[in-house]
Design a protein around this nucleic acid. Sequence first.
DNA 1: TCCCTATCAATGCATCTGCATCTATATGGA
DNA 2: TCCATATAGATGCAGATGCATTGATAGGGA
Lengths: 134, 134
Amino acid sequence: MRVSRQLVERTEGALKAGGLPPLAWYDVLHELAEAGEGGLRPFELIDRVLLAQYGVSRLLARLEEDGLVEKLPVSDDGRGQTVRITSSGRDMRRRIWAVYGASIAELMGDRLSAEDLEMLAGLLGRLRDPPVTD
Amino acid sequence: MRVSRQLVERTEGALKAGGLPPLAWYDVLHELAEAGEGGLRPFELIDRVLLAQYGVSRLLARLEEDGLVEKLPVSDDGRGQTVRITSSGRDMRRRIWAVYGASIAELMGDRLSAEDLEMLAGLLGRLRDPPVTD
DNA sequence: TCCCTATCAATGCATCTGCATCTATATGGA
DNA sequence: TCCATATAGATGCAGATGCATTGATAGGGA
């Protein structure tokens, strides 16, 4: 907990110092960039990023406001919409990555070898998605 | 990031379900219990727990309100105070631990062997306290 | 002694987050 | 067709958090 918190704080700090938005913005822009022209439905984003339904809803509103994504009505479901990244969204993603990637390299790559990183990923992977206890 | 977030969410959820306060309360009560009758100064807590100065200040106010800690003036420094855990604070700490400890056992102990845990702790330890980049 | 600066702790304000709920549409059964 | 229930997404409200600043005392040098 301490380590992950420290790493996040350092990285968020670096982004803020560079006048860039928080990590959550990167996560969403990244997923949307991966999704391509087809975009994603908001409920698909919920599974991919570390945000709850209302978090996604509000973040998308901010991103749209800033022109980084666009919302399109979806023909076969009147309740929903499709969200697609814009070119200025792709640009923002690249600018965030310049800082984020450097932060990862500094905080992790410089401290652990490739084998160490693989080992760490493996151990953490075994803690993922613990079954829900009723 | 995903793993630590999931683990925290599960544990916080278990505490909430048991009508208990958040993990941060445990951290502070734990440190104060370790410190014994002498208590701790708020600024000493800042280094020990995952909270900023204002977070400690506000959490201590809540804990005092609930009678879990008491604030004592400190003779040789008129600016400060010493915070000491009360007996009902010790009691609350035990009740939180019953849930928190069980959560750790379920989410980590059941998934990783003792050697795995040691390995994980070692790897994470090497990521701790990265030097500040100016 | 008098200040200037540093440190301890608290707090006003804006923003973020969680929770519950709401609106709107979809779906399936009577 | 009509209605009950489920799902997609948005939002009001309360509480938490981050940031900057404040108030108060300490400490050290002129």
